[in-house]
Simulated assay, not measured.
Amino acid sequence: MLKLKVEGMSCNHCVMAVKKALLKVPGVERAEVSLEKGEAWVEGKAEVEALIRAVEEEGYKASPLA
């Protein structure tokens, strides 16, 4: 599982937009997003760069968490 820090989310609409964007990335099997923590968890074999790019295309900032 991969964790991303997601910045810029302020409501549940933001959460759904980020989740939908992550689920569209090839290799993603499951994605969960937490507004409270400002994080996303992704399961699958997607490239980190592709996940970050997908989130940024929705207008949010993303970075990998260790």
Rank of each mutant, 00 (worst) to 15 (best):
M1D: 12
L2E: 13
L4R: 04
L4G: 10
L4Y: 10
L4H: 05
L4C: 14
K5D: 15
K5I: 06
K5F: 13
K5Q: 14
V6G: 09
V6T: 07
E7N: 08
E7W: 09
E7S: 08
G8Q: 05
G8I: 11
G8L: 04
M9R: 00
S10W: 06
S10T: 13
C11Q: 02
C11F: 01
H13A: 09
H13T: 03
C14R: 00
C14Q: 00
C14D: 00
V15C: 00
M16L: 15
M16D: 14
M16V: 10
A17E: 10
V18S: 06
V18Y: 04
K19I: 03
K19S: 06
K19R: 15
K19E: 14
K20R: 10
K20W: 06
K20H: 12
K20P: 07
A21K: 02
A21T: 01
A21C: 04
L22Y: 10
L22E: 00
L22G: 03
L22K: 02
L23N: 09
L23E: 15
K24M: 04
K24E: 14
V25T: 11
V25H: 12
V25Y: 07
V25P: 11
P26C: 05
V28G: 02
E29P: 09
R30N: 13
R30Y: 09
R30P: 02
E32A: 12
E32L: 15
E32G: 11
V33R: 01
V33M: 12
S34V: 00
S34H: 00
L35C: 03
L35R: 15
E36H: 09
E36V: 13
E36S: 05
K37W: 03
G38E: 02
G38P: 07
E39C: 09
A40V: 15
W41P: 01
V42E: 04
V42A: 05
E43F: 11
E43A: 14
E43N: 12
E43C: 11
K45Q: 09
E47I: 08
V48R: 15
V48E: 06
V48C: 10
A50M: 03
A50I: 04
A50T: 03
L51W: 05
L51A: 08
R53D: 13
R53N: 08
R53H: 13
R53S: 15
R53E: 11
A54M: 07
A54L: 07
V55L: 11
E56S: 03
E56F: 06
E57Q: 15
E57V: 11
E58Y: 06
E58F: 03
E58P: 12
E58R: 06
G59Q: 01
G59N: 08
G59W: 05
G59M: 01
G59L: 05
Y60M: 10
Y60L: 10
Y60T: 11
Y60F: 14
Y60G: 12
K61T: 12
K61Q: 09
K61H: 02
S63E: 13
S63R: 10
S63Y: 02
S63L: 04
A66H: 15
